[in-house]
Amino acid sequence: MDLSAINPVLLVASLIVAATPLLFAALGELVVERAGVLNLGVEGMMITGAICGFIVGVESGSAYLGFLGAAAGGALLSLIFGVLTQYLLSNQVATGLALTLFGLGLSALLGQGYQGVKGPTPARLDIPVLSDLPVVGRIVFGHDLMVYAGLALVVAVWWLLTRSRAGLILRAVGENHDAAHALGYKVVRVRLAAIAFGGACAGIGGAYLSLVRVPQWTEGMTGGAGWIALAIVVFAAWKPWRALLGAWLFGGVTVLQLNLQAAGIALPVEYLSMSPYLVTILVLVLMSSGRAPGSLGRIFHKTG
């Protein structure tokens, strides 16, 4: 065992990157849930975003167009969920689970012919002087633009939810849809917008895997990240800043376990591999202090 081989600076830098796809997906789901909708289809939307982004990226040669494509793909898929649950009043839990299964299958179909293809990758930020600073340079200034976009999204979602009128309406819809309806707010419309936003964010998170992290397309490549994102939302008690914390925690354990393995720590590999998931469960149990939005998962019907 040689722990000195682990470079803490690089560890933190790769932790931030590993957390990015989770952060996008979790923020999207957070907004959806604050609007009172429980969409368990995050995994399906992520993987659909991963393949849509990859296809657009490969065909156009631009990673950023790829991310746009991923957002569109994820949003479109989520709107299927939206129509089913908001207009046809289907059960949200069952529909969300079905959306995950559907997304996995759909992405495998779309991905035929894109396996083993090299995609475009966005360049890593390289600011003269700043990026060369010791420690800070690599951690703060050495990432691709999407990492910063993720952080900006945390601020944006926080501001939207707590400081804007639109956020107030969205929260009202999520807390008590009957009261919001009585006040004249369009509950279904607000929720559809939130669902589409959640789908777009999940799609971007998925595309971050297929365009930046790997960067390649394979079936099932999200590997359960969507479920972790769902757990992070609960862990975060529906607050954006804590979602960031949750994503970093999970990303950190993922990166750390590989580093420990490479450093030859004498712990069975199986335990190390399961550690990110164990930590997620543990944290959920310890920190289940948050209060869920009042109308979360309940069906809204105007005459009801």
């Binding site: 790997v214 394979t218 590999v269």
Partner: peptide, 26 residues
């Protein structure tokens, strides 16, 4: 030698992660 076991024959996401970790460790 630094060795990482990924317990899969084919999983680009994990393989990439493992390669990055090894590169991070020099």
């Amino acid at each position: 030698y630094r060795i990482v076991w990924v317990y899969t024959w084919f999983d680009p996401a994990q393989e990439a992660e493992a390669a990055r970790t090894l590169i991070d460790q020099g």
